[in-house]
Design a protein around this nucleic acid. Structure first.
Lengths: 125, 125
DNA sequence: GTAACCGCTTTCCTTTAGGTAAGTACTGAC
DNA sequence: GTCAGTACTTACCTAAAGGAAAGCGGTTAC
């Protein structure tokens, strides 16, 4: 008797669509900082040092790299104003605002997750 | 005259809360595969090889590691059934279902993002 | 016996992420 | 001149992610 092979069952095709979507989304939103940076700039446009001050822990090297990456993917815009000295203001694009729901859900989940972790720490002690 | 310093403006405190939430969420959901694996198992419980077949591209080493990690964080449960040979079935926990909205939004966004990329490719050619 | 399947583990290796620290080119204040 | 601030870049390094391929201990099929 042969084993029932996975290929015989149709279930994985139902799954494949949203799976691919999630993988595609994560491809551009990968890494530790991208979502946080988008959230930060959606709330208000900011300068390099302001961002670095707000996202505590990020180094200037990584911040510069992530900003370039986000600009390439059309999530943010780098505006140079000819003041003296020049001001460089990063702002979120319309496109980055399409991530509003994703980031909103993530934030809500993160909040309750932190609470859950705190609870389980209390039980252990 | 002194420059206006960022600290003088209250805006960053409004931002800090949700920023921290997002960072906390990403801390447990980091990496290329975790969200996809959770989605895969929320749709139905599966065996090791079934998962590896569905999530194309993941190696057995990485899959084993990610499954352990997800089990530690209470997102999935590893059930061993004493059949001959033993069946090992991974299933999503109730807690992983709290990510439903996050993953749903991510999937929806990923889908429209892929469409957008396709559009921009057409324009360039 | 031999081969194949299951659920991994092990080894080896390359790539990437990310951190530290220093430096640079400019301007303005003192 | 010197110091501070802005917006980075560069060089160096470590740690983690992740891939390829083989192995392993068991069972079942032929």
């Amino acid at each position: 008797m042969k084993m029932i092979r996975n290929e015989d069952l149709p279930s994985h095709e139902e799954c494949a669509g949203s799976l691919k979507n999630v993988l595609d989304a994560l491809y551009v939103l990968n890494g530790k900082w991208k979502m946080a940076l988008i959230l930060c700039l959606v709330q208000s446009s900011k300068r390099f040092n302001e961002i670095q001050h707000e996202i505590t822990g990020i180094s200037s090297k990584v911040l510069a790299k992530e900003l370039k990456d986000l600009e390439l993917n059309d999530f943010i815009k780098r505006n140079v104003y000819p003041t003296t000295p020049v001001s460089i203001i990063y702002e979120a694009t319309e496109y980055s605002r399409t991530l509003k729901n994703v980031i909103g859900e993530l934030s809500a989940w993160g909040e309750q997750h932190r609470e859950r972790i705190k609870q389980s720490m209390r039980k252990q002690s």
